[in-house]
Design a protein around this nucleic acid. Structure first.
Lengths: 354, 354
DNA sequence: ATGAAAGCGCTAACAT
DNA sequence: ATGTTAGCGCTTTCAT
C-alpha cells in the first residue's frame, strides 16, 4: 500500500455508497442510518482510509495551518513565542508552518510571500520598518504582528518597552547607580523605545545616558562590545543591555577582563531568558512574557479566522515584569566606579571619567 | 482583490493563450516565442498572479514541505536541530511544518499521522521504543530518525552516546575523581548508552557508578534532584548529568545548599547548550553537534526524496566532542568529597559513605 | 438520508 | 511551440 493511497472513491465502493455520503460521514455533516454508518465505519477501518487534506483544502480554501515567521529560532525570545503559539495552535487543531528568516531582510519578503499561499493566517516577527508593511497586508491573509504599528490598524501584540526601560533604570537608580550605559541594538524596532524609557527615568535624577550599540542581539556581540565600554573613557557603574543574550556575553567578557561582578558593575537585560537564572551572577532582567505573547498572537489570529475578531482585535499589550537577581547590586555612596584599588591587566587602558 | 485570487485561467485569457501554456511558463518547462513570453509576463505582472501551490501539490503529489516533529522546542538541543534543518530546507526551497509534541506520547502518534499527509517526508525525534516504529514507516513517507535503530533499516542520524559517556568519565577520572554519580533521565533512549560508556571507563579503574534519575530533561528537574545526591548517604565528588539543562539546575541548587563549586563537586553534562558557557562555573559538556544533526537529517531526507539515497543512506554518526570548562576541576588525593571542614546547614543529613 | 454531478486550480499526456 | 483534454481527491449544491 505504498503508492496509491486509498481515496474516498475506494471507500464509497467498498461500502456501497456514494462518495458524497463518505464525505459527509468524514466531516460529520449529517446523520446516517445505522446500516450505512456501520458499513462506512467498516470500510474506512478496513482500508485504513484517511482523507486527503490537500484536496479538502483546495475546495474549502482553508488549510488549518498558520505561518509563523521569526528572525532566529535560537534566540530564546523567539523560541518562547513559537512554544506559546504552538500550544494554542495544537489546542485548536492547527499546525505551524515555521520560517526562520535568519535575520535576512532580503529573504524575508520572498519567504513570507510564498508562505502566505499555504496558510490561513500568519504571525510575523520582523525588522521591517513600520511603513513598509502594506505589502504584507495585501497578501490577503490575516496577519498578527509584534509591536504596535503607528500607521496601520493591524492586529498585533507587544509589551510596553518604554515602561520596561523605565523599570530597569529606576531599579538601578534606586540602587545608587550614577553612570548608566545602554548597550543597545539599533536595528531592532524596540531599541528606541527602551532608550526613551530609560531616559525618562534618568531625567528625573538629572542624569544622562551613554548609548552604545551591539552588532547583533547575541551573546557573542555582547562579548565583543564589552571592552569598549569597560575600558573606555566613560566606564559605567551599570549597564543595561538590549537583551539578556547581550548581557550574558557582556558579563562573561567583563569577568575575563578581570572585573568582579556585580561589584564593579551592575548588569541588566531584557527578555528574562530561561538561562539568565543560571548565569553567575544570575541576571536581572525584565520579563516580557514572550511565551504568552506567542499564545496571545495565535489566539488573536484564530479568533479573526473564526469571525470573532471583535473580542481582542487591534493591539494588545502585555505587562513587563522586573525580575531582580544578583547581577544588580547597591552602589554605595562615594564608591566611584573607577575608584577601586584592584589591579587589572588592562588598567593602562583606562582614563579618568569625564 | 481580497477574495477570488487570480487563477491560471485568468492569466491565460488575459494573455490570449491556453492554460497549459501558462502552466509551462510558470514551471519553466518549455521555451516560448518572444511574443507569447512577453504577453505572459505582462499578464502575470498585471494580474499579480501567483500559482496556487495546493492545486499544484495535488497533482504532483509533492508539497515541498518537510515535517519536523520534536519533543520540546525550548530544549536547546532541539532548537539547534530545527535551526540546522531549517537552513538546509531553505537552501533547497523547502518549508518546515513544525510539530512540538510537548513530550506527550499520546499526542505524538496522532500528530505525526496527520503530519504525514501534508508533507513529502519527515524528521522525527521521539521517545518511542525501537520496536514500535513500524507504524511510522507504514505512513508511506520517507522518514529520518535520531539515534540508531536496532531493528529496522531506517535512515537516521545520531552520535556515539557510548563514546560520549566514556569521554566524560575519562575526563573526570583523570582529574582524580573517585565517587562519580550519574543523574540520568531514564525515559530517554540514549540514557542507557551513556551509562554504558561511563561504566566502561569506570570499570578500567575498578570504580562503580551510582545512578540517579531526574524527572524530566530540564533545569528544574536538576534542581529538584540535587539535594538527594548532595545530602544523601553517598555524596559524590563528581556528577555527570543526562544533559546540560539538568546540570545547570543542579549547579544552581548545589550552590544554594551552600556548596562551593567546582571545589566541592565537579559537574558535567551532555549537549553543550549555548548558555552552558555563560553559567558559573562554566559547564563542562560533550558537544553533540546538534545543529549539524539537523542539517544532516534534512540532507539525508532531501537526498532520499530526490532519488540519490545511495549517497548517505542508513545510519550516520556524528562525533561527540568534549568541551572542558570550569565546572570540572582536579580533585587532589586525600581530599575526600565529604572531608571538608565547611559548615553547612544540612550537615546533619549526611552520613559516612558506604 | 443518500446520490449525481459540477467543479476547486492546476499539471500532464497527447495532439497539432 | 501551443492547445485540448482528462483528471488529482475532495466538497457542495441540488435532486431524489
Amino acid at each position: 500500500m505504498k503508492k496509491g493511497a486509498t481515496t474516498i472513491r475506494d471507500v464509497a465502493a467498498a461500502a456501497g455508497v456514494s462518495v458524497a455520503t463518505v464525505s459527509k460521514y468524514m466531516n460529520g455533516t449529517q446523520r446516517f442510518t445505522p446500516a450505512v454508518e456501520a458499513r462506512l465505519k467498516e470500510a474506512i477501518e478496513q482500508l485504513g482510509y484517511r482523507s486527503n487534506p490537500l484536496a479538502r483544502s483546495m475546495i474549502t480554501g482553508r488549510t488549518r495551518t498558520i505561518g509563523l515567521a521569526i528572525l532566529d529560532i535560537r534566540n530564546p525570545h523567539f523560541t518562547n513565542i513559537v512554544k506559546g503559539a504552538n500550544r494554542v495552535a495544537l489546542q485548536h487543531d492547527y499546525t505551524l508552518l515555521l520560517v526562520d528568516t535568519e535575520e535576512s531582510q532580503e529573504r524575508e519578503q520572498t519567504l513570507i510571500e510564498s508562505l502566505a499561499q499555504r496558510v490561513d493566517g500568519m504571525i510575523v516577527s520582523s525588522r521591517m520598518p513600520d511603513d513598509s508593511v502594506q505589502w504584507l497586508l495585501d497578501l490577503g491573509k490575516p496577519v498578527v504582528l509584534f509591536g504596535r504599528s503607528s500607521r496601520f490598524q493591524i492586529s498585533s501584540v507587544g509589551t510596553d518597552s518604554n515602561l520596561a526601560g523605565y523599570m530597569l533604570a529606576n531599579h538601578l537608580l534606586k540602587l545608587g547607580h550614577k553612570r548608566i550605559a545602554y548597550l543597545g541594538f539599533g536595528r531592532s524596532r524596540w531599541n528606541d523605545e527602551r532608550i526613551r524609557g530609560i531616559r525618562n527615568c534618568l531625567d528625573e535624577y538629572g542624569l544622562s545616558l551613554d548609548v552604545y550599540d551591539a552588532q547583533s542581539p547575541s551573546a557573542a556581540a555582547g562579548e565583543r562590545a564589552c571592552s569598549g565600554l569597560m575600558l573606555g573613557p566613560k566606564r559605567p557603574d551599570a549597564v543595561i543591555c538590549y537583551n539578556d543574550l547581550i548581557a550574558l556575553g557582556f558579563i562573561k567578557e567583563a569577568r575575563e577582563l578581570g572585573f568582579s561582578l556585580p561589584r564593579d558593575v551592575s548588569i541588566a537585560g531584557f527578555d528574562n531568558v530561561p538561562y539568565g537564572e543560571y548565569a553567575s551572577p544570575a541576571l536581572t532582567s525584565v520579563d516580557f512574557q514572550s511565551e504568552r505573547m506567542g499564545e496571545l498572537a495565535m489566539t488573536k489570529l484564530l479568533d479573526e479566522l473564526h469571525g470573532k475578531s471583535e473580542e481582542n482585535a487591534g493591539y494588545s499589550m502585555l505587562d513587563p515584569h522586573l525580575v531582580v537577581r544578583e547581577s544588580t547590586v547597591r552602589r554605595e555612596v562615594g564608591e566611584a566606579a573607577d575608584g577601586d584599588a584592584r589591579t587589572r591587566k588592562s588598567m593602562s587602558g583606562m582614563r579618568a571619567a569625564e
